[in-house]
Design a protein around this nucleic acid. Sequence first.
DNA 1: CGCCACTGACTGAATTGTCAATCAGCGAGT
DNA 2: ACTCGCTGATTGACAATTCAGTCAGTGGCG
Lengths: 216, 216
Amino acid sequence: MVGQVSDIAPHIEQRLPRTQSRDARRLQVIEATIETLAERGYSRATLTEVARRAKISHGLVLFHFQSKENLLAETLAFMAEEYHQNWKGAIAGQTGDPAAELHALILADFAPAVCTRHKLAAWTAYWGEAQSLPVYQEICGQKDGEYIAVLERISQDLLLRAGRHNDPATLARILRLTQEGTWMDITTMSEPYSFDVARETVLECARLLFRDQFPY
Amino acid sequence: MVGQVSDIAPHIEQRLPRTQSRDARRLQVIEATIETLAERGYSRATLTEVARRAKISHGLVLFHFQSKENLLAETLAFMAEEYHQNWKGAIAGQTGDPAAELHALILADFAPAVCTRHKLAAWTAYWGEAQSLPVYQEICGQKDGEYIAVLERISQDLLLRAGRHNDPATLARILRLTQEGTWMDITTMSEPYSFDVARETVLECARLLFRDQFPY
DNA sequence: CGCCACTGACTGAATTGTCAATCAGCGAGT
DNA sequence: ACTCGCTGATTGACAATTCAGTCAGTGGCG
């Protein structure tokens, strides 16, 4: 589904031709959906608001996405794929050094491509609904599993090097929850902190968990 | 508001009298609201469904709570107050030993009174909406701040005893996010783990952060 | 000139909130 | 003890609104 959305140039604002190619329009609608979810939350997100932000009629949104349910599912799939590509790319450029991989993984999560206020807010909106809409768990399940597997592998490597016997799955979980949590804090706390503080928190978490094995 | 809900006997199932006292009915509706949020999520929670679960007409729900908006706000306030009382009570029974306090705090978060699947799912549902409905942040903001302050104070105490110079606020944040995160995992993961594993994860987090200062 | 993208009015369904009528419980008066 | 009448809980029909989804028709572009 999301694969159909080609990676054409971003920043295609104003002065759009009256009619757009299928893929360009779909991408534009997905971005409008993310904004809408961020501004109004899941429960008050409407097709009319998405259409207003994309400056098209709400009929056209349905023309391209068939139903609201499908639009929201495809938007989530888009973000999941984007997130997945982002961290995969970050560790692909690494040597086999687990500490360097972990460092790259953490930095990747705060890269501008995936870590914007709108996208973070949209993720939070989906999280609230995912528990009662299994379709969302299906969209993210596979990719989440892959991310967790990589984190656990890295944790295991680092623990082995230090000759420690903690459970790598537990440490990987603590790291993941700290990272996800800072993302949520940024959008939901009454006194939110900056992206920089969030990233530094996750890095400090890695240092405390892996000590000398994570010298960043 | 929530203070008006007296702590009358729980387990008042079946065989209710046709008419209920104001407080008993309000509490019953709040519990039905938590169940509804857990089962259907925020966006698909309806007054009719709440009424169905409470076995009353939907008109009566509005009679007691004036509006849906108010019902949801009061339900959140109820859970926030319950959570607050729970952890306050847990550390009240402690000596001044910070490690013991932290241990009690962590165990309290997994006590049956506050840590049920329904309530965890309801919390998750509210989190998704809180970012776009400031009223929810107001309801929780004060109490959250108090919880964070206590965690930071404990962190500082433990770090001082070890002569370490990490930032107590950062460690407190990692602990809080790990705890909140395990709560969310339980309701949203495709392969959720048990309450026991969740609690053990948070305890292990405390051990890793505070080392010898947290011998539990 | 044919094909899509596109529009906007319209429909049907779901849902919140209102309200007049009803009913249960309870205390006062007999 | 019995009834009357008051108070407040309760119901369900109804109004009003919002919103997803449909569709017939328009128009730009190759």
